[in-house]
Write a protein that binds this DNA or RNA. Structure first.
Lengths: 224, 224
DNA sequence: TGATTATAATAGTGTTGCTATCTTTTATGT
DNA sequence: ACATAAAAGATAGCAACACTATTATAATCA
């Protein structure tokens, strides 16, 4: 399935829209790969410039700093996830079936969807798993929230919460369950790989299916 | 209840044991307050030295860098939490009651326990809520895990998982549920304060009781 | 052709993270 | 009380990082 929409993100996240130029697209492409490879703490614009054969100053014309670049990339993921959920559940009537599709998408999004040529979806998902909580765990969170930087996340949670309420209209914690299902997906991929005693998911082939099964088990207990 | 044990932590976390000297205790005390105040990204040893009227070089004699200092403080929290759970559930027979006590401790630990004079437990809990995931979301996670830096977390999860299995011996995800209950506590305090649309917890008085109620609701559905 | 825009190239500044060295203070043992 | 060692303070310095400024060059378009 080819996705030919250009992902629409909050303009406050960048100085100059990286999707509108070749250099901008190369910044997106190489920053995803480099952050996935060396980690966000070790990542900086000088290394990125070397990697993509450009200059530090050129990258600063697109993004104010590396924190906003990370926020941009993670917002991209949230928006892309949200978009995939919408199109995959569009014609589905049964809300239980919808939630199953949502969970399947949380877990397997990067494998199923070859989307935009300058974005390596698998690396982007790894980046989200390893680094995304740093986006909103800062002292500037309230200010950035006021600027709408986390709207893509909130919209995704809001649409999942709606489905939960379709299944069980009096469920008292639809938003908390929605955000928790999403966070759990990523957390337990990470734990399985690095801190296996904090989970019951094996670090083996079939890991994704195991996580999916666990999430389905949780919602069946909570919503049946 | 006064706690007069000295918290025992992995010696790999420090160069010189900060609990064994006055300066070391002042480092613990002021680093908790300063990180809580300005956030981990803005925090550094120079600012800490100014704050506590000492010098950068002196602090470097105790901790290799700010990341290991954060790991030390969060490990302190994990160990302290684990200790409180042990003593509070020690004489309790009913595993359901035990799990309720554990959840109550997750939520209210900082209010109930005036413990060690140089640790502000309330600030420490805030710090854990805002910064603790950064401790293990780094490229060095596997190496640090091999050195045993996250044992306190794993032990806490392991003891909670045991209680879960006492309640329901065939429950398939005891470790995942244990870590998730802990993570959920802190995540939803943070969401209620900063990203309220990601939760159903109000940012009001009684917030802690609301979170406790939510966790009790989740375990009742999952374990009854 | 000339004007505008995007990118590259280079340099520079202040801060951070960390190490080294030396001096002063404090604690310990005889 | 004095000698010795250990702890802490004071100061300097360096390499890397985060970011800004300036100028040059190439591409685009009126």
């Amino acid at each position: 399935m080819a996705v030919n929409v250009s992902i629409s993100l909050n303009p406050g996240l960048y100085i100059k829209d990286p999707q509108q130029s070749e250099l901008g697209k190369r910044i997106i492409k190489h920053s995803i790969l480099l952050i996935d490879e060396i980690g966000f703490e070790q990542f900086n614009f000088k290394k990125l410039a070397e990697e993509m054969k450009s200059t530090e100053a050129s990258i600063y014309r697109y993004f104010e700093n590396k924190h906003l670049l990370l926020t941009y990339l993670v917002s991209w993921y949230w928006e892309w996830l949200n978009y995939m959920i919408q199109i995959k559940t569009f014609n589905v009537e049964d809300p239980k079936k919808k939630l199953e599709i949502i969970i399947h998408t949380f877990v397997l999004i990067s494998e199923e969807n070859p989307a935009i040529d300058y974005v390596n979806e698998s690396s982007l998902h790894n980046l989200v798993i390893a680094e995304s909580t740093k986006v909103y765990h800062t002292k500037g969170v309230d200010e950035e929230n006021n600027k709408g930087f986390f709207l893509n996340y909130k919209e995704m949670v809001s649409s999942v919460a709606e489905v939960i309420l379709e299944i069980k209209p009096n469920f008292p914690y639809p938003h908390a369950l929605a955000s928790n299902l999403f966070e759990m997906t990523n957390t337990h991929f990470y734990f399985a790989d690095h801190l296996p005693r904090l989970t019951d998911i094996d670090n083996k082939a079939g890991q994704k299916e195991e996580v999916e099964k666990m999430l389905l088990f949780f919602i069946s207990k909570l919503l049946d």
